[in-house]
Design a protein around this nucleic acid. Structure first.
Lengths: 227, 227
DNA sequence: CTTGACATCGAACGCATGTTCAGGTATTAT
DNA sequence: ATAATACCTGAACATGCGTTCGATGTCAAG
């Protein structure tokens, strides 16, 4: 009895094979062999598996490196996503100096707890990934930047900024760390809160102002409101 | 002339091999063979590669599936990260109804543009991934929820909520969509803005109120301030 | 009924690839 | 000096694994 193709492009067996490849890759971190696919999808002959694999490839569901053992991968939506592990250097809070990144130190240990994994496609495409770090916001002092207690801010290392970029700055004048949009005006700096309803603060050019980095992303894990 | 181990645990060659495996895996989506490692790291004999691989395994830098072609993977920090592709159903704006998720529709096409990839370790660990979706915030009406124009909110499908959870609701009374912390009180609902400086709004129990989902994450790509 | 496209099987072939071994040469400890 | 250890070589071996091919069965069109 012949198996009929159900949904025009993908038959039941194609789907099963595709699913198996993904699950296998996910579990073992390497692709399955033709024979393993066969065993798992109740196909007794390697040539039949090859037959289906060819079709899947022709239709763009997978890619194959011929002649190479286990040289196949699924393409498209469920393909593996490229991520960047960004170290969380420490907290940022109003009255405390910002954590400095020590040059030459490799923050990328296997310590998942002190890092955030961000998909590369969420970052500017040119972003290489070095000179990125993250800070954990403590307290509610960044509220005028639309940033709340517990938020993670992803930063790019920088000691100067162009107009309109959001920066983390240390203001020796007020002894305070803050996040603001940065503007250089005729003889002063304007630090503009992200919240449009709030007013900017001004710093004279001759006053010190230390830019610690540019904010490129904010991540907030929303939890139950602590009332 | 003997090669001296530099940094106690990892020699120069160990490092080179480790780097190569990662880069290869990243490029070809499958692990390299022993011979490929050898060629690339200037090691003429497969047994030497095997020798180093054994050491790397013993020290926990890689894992190996013996006897299986290309059965090796790096462990730890730079290991591949598990991500979830969450479909962006549409915009959420004050005066417009929320996009509904059509049952039975598979949103997970290969359309990267209409989805966000989120590392699983950023979500609650029990989260399975189905019944998650995302909305793109339009306009500045969610400012009292500390959410700005352009933000991506990751939602979990729900039509009811427990006290303290942040929900997306449709208020027929005001003809408005909004994001608020939800509290059920004696004879009314209290919708609390995330910004602690702002006041809650109250809805009588007998008035309609449609909960569309719980907010579990907010992602903001910070760009230059459009002044 | 014949033909041909499609699906499947089993077996054989041969290169790819991990494993093992019998030595080598330095460097260091005893 | 001798022994021990770490590093390396080359080759042989066994098997993993993709490829190819001939044969069989089913179904729809001509």
């Amino acid at each position: 009895m012949m198996m009929v193709r159900k949904s025009k492009g993908l038959g039941e067996r194609h789907q099963k094979i595709l699913d198996f490849i993904q699950e296998y890759q996910h579990t073992y971190k390497h692709p399955p062999s033709i024979r393993e696919i066969g065993e798992n999808c109740d196909i007794s002959s390697t040539s039949v598996v090859n037959y289906y694999l060819d079709q899947l490839e022709k239709n763009g569901y997978i890619e194959r490196d011929r002649k190479i053992s286990r040289g196949l991968r699924v393409t498209g939506a469920n393909a593996s996503v490229d991520t960047l592990r960004i170290p969380i250097l420490g907290p940022i809070a109003a009255g405390f100096p910002l954590p400095e990144l020590q040059p030459g130190v490799n923050y990328l240990t296997d310590n998942e707890a002190h890092a955030v994994d961000v998909a590369r496609n969420l970052l500017p495409s040119k972003e290489k990934g070095t000179d990125l770090y993250a800070l954990e916001v403590k307290g509610e002092s960044m509220i005028d930047a639309m940033i709340n207690d517990g938020d993670i801010v992803v930063m790019k290392r920088a000691d100067e900024a162009r107009n309109g970029e959001m920066v983390a700055v240390w203001l020796p004048r007020d002894n305070e760390a803050t996040l603001k949009y940065f503007f250089k005006e005729k003889d002063r700096y304007r630090l503009q809160p992200a919240n449009p309803t709030m007013k900017p603060i001004y710093i004279n050019r001759d006053e010190p102002l230390e830019i610690k980095g540019k904010v490129i992303m904010v991540i907030r894990k929303v939890e139950s409101y602590a009332a």
